[in-house]
Structure formats: structure tokens, C-alpha cells
Simulated assay, not measured.
Amino acid sequence: MTSSPTPPATSNAGYSIADGNAASRNAYGWAKKTFPNRAGRPGEPAQDLDGGFSNEIRFGQERLGISSDGIGTKIEVAERLNRYDTLGYDLIAMTADDLIAAGFVPTNLSNIIDVNSLNYSVVDELMRGLHDAANFAGLAITGGEIAELGNRIGGWPGARMNFNWCSTAIGVLHPSLERPLSGVGVRAGMAVVALRSPSFRSNGFSLARRTLINLFGENWHEATYDGPDAANFSTWGDAMLAPSLIYSPGISALLDAGLPLHGIAHITGGGVADNFQRVLKGGVGAVLDNLFSPLPAMQRLCELGGISAEDAYLYWNMGNGMLLVTEEASAAAVVAQLQAGGYDAQVAGRITADPGVTLRVGAGELRYS
């Protein structure tokens, strides 16, 4: 099976990844025009992480990373289930793992909760979960705000509180690195290591929700979950709310151990192929022939909703939350270190001299250029 170089103008998710990437590039282009404002002064931005989800700012010899993100429409799942204490893991994963993907160890986070009208107990559940996630990731929550915006914020009807939740995190460049990880050192023959994701994380929910609505109607979250892992979830809502695993502690441990990393892709919006191509600089490509199998819930949605493998690997992580590029000779040690830290990891493929990403998965061979 071969995919087109870019997805169709409109997809099952209702938008084009190509259009989204173009809008992001345009927004970043405007942002870069402000970089001269801090040239030669504290807070000077670097420009060697173009295409990444975090960037570098310099304060003298100190090199910090900064990343902003939110948890998107996964919030609606929490509203439907009236359960909010896991979303903090999603919020931290989106920014902390973007930072560590560039070699910045996350240290601090600020967050903002925009609400229609304030509900104390919901905010307490959100912040309790954020506290637990911050303890797992080893960072401090050092800023935040709650803003009541009335009917500017909508969501699931009947929820105790409708809201949007975003954060900005900063981190410090790991002392073993001379410069952020950007993929410039990636060469043919290097190994690719995958870390398993046990959930959808906070991406691809528009496609997933649309599929579930088509299958089960507006109350899809109450529909009985019938995936192969049905012992873990009673409803589709339970399966979709599973929290994100935070990878930054495991990657920090690799760097602490002195294991070589040349590029890291955090698999978020844009799926496996689109995100991994961000670290393939200099015309190299990759063949990934040993990725983790798709999550049972993702596989079941593909079967029920008629979602092609090409689309699924473009919109979802398909069970692979992060891809690391390391030396071939170090791949086994990288996998062992990650497994010792409680993460599922395995060698997933190799870097090739030919450009493009080829995925050899159960559905066949998918090629993305």
C-alpha cells in the first residue's frame, strides 16, 4: 500500500494536515520576524530548531527551551465522563515531551484555564491531576491563571464546567549536549527506537470523535467498548480518556547515562510519518519495519469506521508515542535503559540514505515523502 505525498485536501478529520502545516509555517514565519528584538540580549532566540515544537532562548551561557500546547478536544471526553483528574498528564506530556525531544529537561510550567463559568470542584480535580503529573515528570508548576469567558467557551452540554486548558513549559538544555537535538546529526545506518504509547495522547480526537458519533450517535461515550483489551475499559469513553504517558523522565535518564541521541520525534498531531520527517535532515529517510502494533482501540476504530491505514498513521500515533535516533551500536543499551525505567521500547527500524519514510506494518507497506 502506498500513500500520496500529502493527504487529500479534506480528510476524515475534516481538515488537511498539509493546510495545518502551512498555517504553522506561516505563523512561525511571523514569529521569527520578532527574533531581532532580543538579538544580543537576554532571551535571544536560536533558529536551529525550525520545524520543531519547542525553541531555544539564551540567557548568557544558559540555554533554555520553551514550548506551548494544550490538550484540545480530549477535554470533551472528560466532560462526557465527568472525570477530570487525568487530564494533567496530557497537558504536561504535550509540552514536557516537546521539550525533551529537543534535549531540554523540563523544569517549570505555567498554565491557563479558560472557563465559561467557574466550578471549584472541577478546577480542583484538574489541578490535583496536574500536581500528580508534575511529580511524575519532576517539574514545578510556577504560574497560572483562571479566566471566566462566559459563552466564548463551549463544550459538552450539561458539563459542570466547559473549559480550554493550555500550558507553557520551560526546560534547560541537558548538560551532556552542546546544542539542542534537531536531527542535523542523523545519518544513514543509525537505528530508530520506538517508545510505546498506551493511549491516543491528546491528538487525533477530531477524527476519533467523528467516527464514534457516526457509529454510535451523540452518546458514543456510553457505548460498550469491544476492543481486544475490553478488560481494561467498559465504554468507548473510558478508552478515549486514557491519559498520556510522559516520556521526558525516560529520555532524561538516557542523556544522564551518556547514551547518544541524534534526533527525537514526539508523535503528536500528524501521526508517525509527518512527525518523524521533522528529524530527517540532509536528505535521509527511514524504514520502520518493527513499530509497536496499533493500540487495540485505534485498530478497532479503523475496522468499524473504515479508516485506511494511510490515514490512521497520519492522524494517530498508532501505539508509538516517541521515536529516537541513536547509533546502531547503542540501540540495545538505549532500549534496556528505557525498559529499566518502566517504558516499553524496541528497535523499530533504520535510517536510510533514500529520502522519505516507509512504514512496514500489518496493513502493508506505507510510503510517505
Score class of each variant (00 low, 15 high):
257 A>P: 05
66 I>W: 04
292 F>R: 01
227 G>V: 10
165 W>L: 09
192 V>M: 05
280 L>C: 10
317 N>P: 04
10 T>P: 05
271 G>H: 02
152 R>N: 11
216 F>Y: 15
150 G>W: 05
135 N>F: 08
91 L>W: 03
66 I>P: 00
318 M>S: 06
55 N>D: 13
208 A>P: 05
112 I>M: 15
118 L>A: 11
156 W>T: 05
6 T>Y: 14
65 G>A: 08
116 N>K: 09
95 T>I: 02
323 L>C: 00
253 A>S: 11
82 N>M: 07
120 Y>S: 12
333 A>E: 14
89 Y>Q: 12
304 L>E: 15
288 L>T: 03
323 L>H: 03
47 Q>W: 08
212 L>K: 11
227 G>Q: 12
34 T>M: 12
220 W>M: 07
101 A>M: 08
252 S>M: 10
303 E>T: 12
197 S>H: 00
62 E>H: 09
220 W>P: 06
316 W>D: 04
27 A>D: 02
235 T>S: 15
110 S>L: 08
187 R>T: 01
123 V>R: 14
254 L>N: 01
233 F>I: 06
184 V>A: 15
65 G>K: 03
240 M>T: 06
287 V>S: 15
100 I>Y: 07
159 A>L: 05
368 Y>D: 06
313 Y>T: 01
225 Y>A: 07
232 N>L: 14
153 I>C: 02
185 G>R: 13
283 G>K: 04
119 N>C: 09
65 G>Q: 13
117 S>I: 12
355 P>C: 04
205 F>G: 09
321 G>F: 08
51 G>D: 00
332 A>N: 14
328 E>K: 15
253 A>F: 07
264 I>R: 03
95 T>K: 04
42 P>T: 12
209 R>S: 02
6 T>W: 13
359 L>D: 00
111 N>V: 08
267 I>G: 03
350 R>D: 10
275 N>Y: 06
115 V>W: 04
224 T>S: 13
337 Q>P: 09
319 G>N: 04
222 E>L: 14
149 L>N: 13
232 N>Q: 14
91 L>C: 10
73 T>Q: 15
214 N>F: 06
212 L>A: 14
306 G>M: 13
164 N>T: 05
282 G>L: 09
340 A>T: 12
345 A>I: 09
87 L>E: 14
53 F>Y: 04
271 G>A: 09
135 N>W: 06
232 N>P: 07
97 D>G: 08
23 A>I: 11
155 G>Y: 09
49 L>C: 11
53 F>W: 11
172 V>G: 14
290 N>V: 03
60 G>M: 03
183 G>D: 02
247 Y>C: 01
150 G>Q: 04
190 M>L: 10
148 E>V: 11
52 G>P: 04
245 L>H: 03
177 L>S: 03
289 D>T: 01
300 R>F: 05
348 A>R: 02
